[in-house]
Design a protein around this nucleic acid. Structure first.
Lengths: 121, 121
DNA sequence: CCCATTACTTACAAATTTGTTAGTACCATA
DNA sequence: TATGGTACTAACAAATTTGTAAGTAATGGG
């Protein structure tokens, strides 16, 4: 989110892992604090910046911008700027992001179940 | 991994998100740098500490210990200590972790495909 | 007694992510 | 001319994760 060092061990490890494990790669793409929440909000269609901000409790404009920029760079979200004043920008899922939706559903089910089990202890 | 502050905004945001979004909750459980790699290695059965260390390129004993401890606490991995000297400890997936395997397969497919598409650009 | 082996732990430092606060440009409207 | 709304950006600080280096306990074998 800030720039990363080019050759830190941290960075090299991540690169290596992500190269060699498609699963880790996939999870990293949605690994930011707010990313999945954003993507879920977009499941039902386009939303503009302010709509996302208002629907996501606690997110700052800075974090929303940062997370959206990464999602855009990674091809999960499409950003459209309308030439108006005041500005209007909206965001929507790309095709490849939509392919994740059924997987999210399963993961979400698992999460719900797991949460119950672990909390019991 | 170190202790977290009790009432940082950071912490409170995470708690809130994880409470309200089962999907984010699920992804957080495997969100550590090395966790998915560890879990993948365990897919085929038990491994001992040193086997994991040797199979995972670049991981330190400290990180392996930390990640295993969290996985154990979160009920994804079962740890068994054998009363021997030198010590022998092995790790295996729990039932609930095994339920994730088919989902991992899908996600991994998606990752592989996505990696190609994004790298092309 | 000394060494080797295994699975760790501890103290510290570096890197990275997240949050805080205060701006910016644009133009229509009052 | 002053104000307002929208979608940001910049500089900085705090929190968190990850990595480094050096230990530790227990016991069997030499």
């Amino acid at each position: 989110m800030g720039k990363r060092k080019e050759n830190s061990t941290n960075m090299l490890n991540e690169s290596f892992i992500v190269e060699s494990c498609d699963l880790t790669y996939a999870v990293c793409k949605v690994g930011g604090r707010w990313k999945l929440l954003i993507l879920c909000k977009l499941e039902n269609g386009k939303l503009r910046f302010s709509e996302l901000r208002n629907q996501i409790n606690g997110i700052t404009e800075r974090m929303l911008t940062l997370q959206l920029r990464e999602l855009e760079k990674d091809g999960l979200v499409k950003r459209t700027v309308h030439a108006e004043v005041p500005p209007r920008v909206d965001y929507e899922l790309t095709i490849i992001a939509k392919e994740l939706i059924p997987i999210w559903a399963k993961l979400s089910q698992w999460g719900k179940k797991h949460k119950k089990i672990v909390v019991q202890q």
